[in-house]
Design a protein around this nucleic acid. Sequence first.
RNA 1: GCCGUGGUAGCCAAGUUGGUCAAGGCGAACGACUGAAAAUCGUUUCAUCUCAGUUCGAUUCUGAGCCACGGCA
Length: 336
Amino acid sequence: MNSKNKNILQQKKRENKLIVILGPTASGKSELAIKLARKFNGEIVCADSRQVYKRMLIGTASPAVEARFLGSPKPSFNSEPKTELQQLPSHYLFNFREPNKPLNVATYKKMAEKAIKDIQKRGKIPFLVGGTGLYIKAIVDNLQFPKLKPSPKLRKELEQKTAPQLFAMYKKLDPKGAKQIDKNNKRRLIRAIEVCKITGQPFWAQRKEATPLFDILQIGIDVPKPELEKRITKRVNKMFRQGLEKEVKALVKKYGWTPVLKNTIGYQEFQGLWKEPSALYSRHSVPLKNLISLHTIQFAKRQMTWFKKDKRIAWVDGLSQARKLVGFFNAIKYRS
RNA sequence: GCCGUGGUAGCCAAGUUGGUCAAGGCGAACGACUGAAAAUCGUUUCAUCUCAGUUCGAUUCUGAGCCACGGCA
């Protein structure tokens, strides 16, 4: 290979970088991402299945609460000095989707890839930041989803059946897959049946990865469990102070209890609590806070279970990050 | 002090007309995960208040004690 080609290759590789910052909730991902992005001329792409939604800022600890770079609605966040705001890196895929229009992995993947490429084209470094394991995996491993949209009709029909019935159905359609599938998990069974029925092919054969589109470094933030739990409790308290209850009420008023709201920690817990409008805060806030903290802690555990499997992740303890990152960034800094 | 009710896992809670008893839920630990993923699902873990009596056998029946709750004083 001559040196010219080599150069082009190298150039290409540089243009292809993607840095992923992941970890459980409340581990400090956003903060780290903003710092790094500032330092290395980067921009941030959301990898969080809840921060994509509009008006769900406080309960998802969206970075849009701290700063208004995405035009978050209320003037209460307005007090940040302008210079601070201007220094904030651009954020993509935050706070953009209506909570009554659920986003899913496949759609997310398309959007995120587009955003990443766009950032790269402009010579900046994309930082993919979030805690949704599947969303990150979709990008990192370039997951190829079966090419069909979910069919609400079929799903509704299947929803009526019991898990054993669904399993029997699936077994007929895809005997191989049936051996591996989680046979009590209706949600998975329904999807698997859906794919088989519509495509006429076994579901298992359609779970594919492709070569990654990017040159990726995954950085995980590892916080010891007791400390993480403390941070979570503290953050839940903060959410209430910031007006979580108001936020939830406004959402419910506008959209009703949509699936997204019912499936989000920090929101779902409010269901059925507003019989007398004004009484809530003092009466329920303690048990409510505890419940939300508990669910968040359990969620963090699930996130870690997912992330721990991926041996490519470089774990940092939140302080020694810089050192571990230097090597990776050298190539990029070199460039300009 | 008297009367009543009750004491089953870290918490809530079933049941045994006496038979290797010990459901379930929450929690906890661990895990899975390809178009709902902050979702969904799996595995494991832990118990009969104490002492005595009746009995082949007591978690169940009897008595005493301790504790909790409610009522009356």
